[in-house]
Nucleic acid binder design. Structure first.
Lengths: 218, 218
DNA sequence: ATTACTAGTAGACGAGTAA
DNA sequence: TTTACTCGTCTACTAGTAA
């Protein structure tokens, strides 16, 4: 991905083209990019060709908008900046305790996972997970965490059922060692599952909807 | 500032050249920038000429490091990304209550400020301020807040003393209307002063070092 | 007003090479 | 090995202009 394309995408995003179509003439975009109308027009065609933006070429003025892959390119660059400016050796996520539906417990209880947790994390997890709903403004941090390596936990098959690869990230809640566990191939979620040697809910006297901070090591 | 320079600065920062000198040959930088050794060498000379990096040209390998103005250029771009991805209509700052030294109260008590607070914020502040020490990982958000307009409060002279311009930003702590107040020409600080119609410490039963979140409107 | 073609040009790049 | 010069090429830009 050439830098000039992300530069253009960023300026379009700043003009509001990330949530919605915006009406921007090639001249206006040229002003934003400090280049001529002709070059801006060419840039738009290039972005279109690469599927980074989509366009609605109306009668008077074109309307453009970033595509999902255009937004992804920007996020990549954004995460580089986070790595530069935010990351020391951990990221703090803010959120609230939520009730799980027991599926976390079902997975964690599998010996195929438990043995690896013990070997790679240094503690045998209490059966069941603590579910934290991450604040909307912090969900982006999950991308940054996922862009780091983490501790890979291999999937396995047991009783005709297959359990996929997951990734664990060592974490701390009020100085208690724990880890967050996410599926290796996961979609967007705002609830994370925390495993710990202790029963965190009891140990820390947490209730549903209690506010909580978790420090994820990188 | 041409995009190609911030691109190079960013890659140097990712290699660690933001805190310390790093040993990077022009070939290595060329790899990072996806360009030839020759072009990378030229890019380094250009960055040096613009005062964006400094170099220690050793016998075997050069060592380079971003200058303060190089870091500023990166921060500008970082703040653009924050505006794109983080900002809805508010920023949440996380921090802890600290004891002030009474100087906040002295300023806020000035009628020259109080009248403007009442007119522009819609409440008459309780005498004295609540001091919040912002978490280290959130101090960068203050730059973003300062890059927005805020509510200007004009300075004045009273009793032979001059009181400078300050900027107020409407905020909320647990749904109570308040505002943070910063000097218009301020240096780096990690403690913010909060004014409110109520005595926040009493109303919310806060103690020194209590953890607190404040939502600043943009 | 728009968007976007063609043509001409400045400058960015890499190969070769010196120190 | 380094860094960084010169020089030829090629590409990314703008001006002019059409639709």
């Amino acid at each position: 991905m050439d830098e000039k394309y992300t530069f253009a995408l960023r300026k379009i995003a700043l003009l509001g083209g990330i949530d919605d179509y915006i009406a921007v003439s090639s001249r206006e975009l040229g002003d934003a990019l400090e280049m001529s109308q002709q070059s801006a027009s060419k840039r738009i065609l290039e972005l279109l060709e690469q599927g980074l933006i989509i366009r609605d070429l109306g009668a008077r003025k074109q309307r453009i908008k970033l595509t999902a892959s255009g937004v992804d390119e920007l996020k990549k660059e954004y995460n580089e900046y986070r790595r530069i400016f935010e990351l020391t050796d951990h990221i703090t996520l803010h959120g609230a305790i939520k009730d799980g539906m027991g599926e976390g417990q079902y997975y964690i209880d599998q010996e195929g996972y438990r043995n690896q947790f013990e070997a790679k994390l240094g503690f045998r997890p209490y059966p069941g997970t603590l579910n934290i709903q991450i604040d909307k403004e912090d969900v982006g941090k999950l991308d940054v965490i996922k862009s780091t390596s983490g501790i890979p936990i291999e999937g396995f098959t047991y009783g005709g059922r297959s359990f996929g690869d997951v990734i664990a990230y060592k974490s701390k809640i009020r100085n208690i060692e724990c880890a967050i566990v996410v599926p290796a191939r996961s979609h967007y979620v705002d609830i994370i599952e925390v495993i710990c040697h202790y029963h965190l809910r009891r140990t820390l006297s947490l209730n549903t909807d209690s506010r909580i901070d978790i420090k994820v090591s990188l």
